[in-house]
């Protein structure tokens, strides 16, 4: 991460944060065993998704270029969507064991 963090650190880390928010919001909108907070309605979720993905793409387009930023965001989304449900299941299972 030397080159990308060295040249544009604010844009890179900002994009990473916005991308992570996007992936979490997407995960919460999908069906199955997700946290799905009650206060986050469908419309708010979709608006949040659009805003966070747009922001992440804009920030990363500055670091990686427009097309590369799109694929980077896709890769980050895939990784987080693969990992988050597993971590969530372990967390829920540990909590139910301890309570």
């Amino acid at each position: 991460m030397r080159l990308e963090t060295a040249s544009e650190p604010v844009f890179f880390w900002g994009g990473l944060l916005a991308g992570a928010v996007w992936a979490v919001l997407l995960w919460m909108q999908l069906p199955g065993n997700t946290p799905g907070p009650e206060k986050l309605g469908r419309t708010a979720g979709v608006v949040g998704l659009a805003l966070s993905s747009g922001l992440a793409w804009l920030l990363w387009a500055h670091v990686f270029g427009a097309v590369t930023a799109f694929f980077c965001l896709g890769g980050l989304g895939m990784v987080l969507l693969c990992i988050m449900p597993i971590l969530w299941a372990i967390l829920i299972s540990t909590q139910s064991h301890t309570s």
Partner: peptide
């Protein structure tokens, strides 16, 4: 593409 970051992804 995307340097070291994508390598870790």
């Amino acid at each position: 593409f995307g340097g070291e970051f994508v390598r870790w992804l």
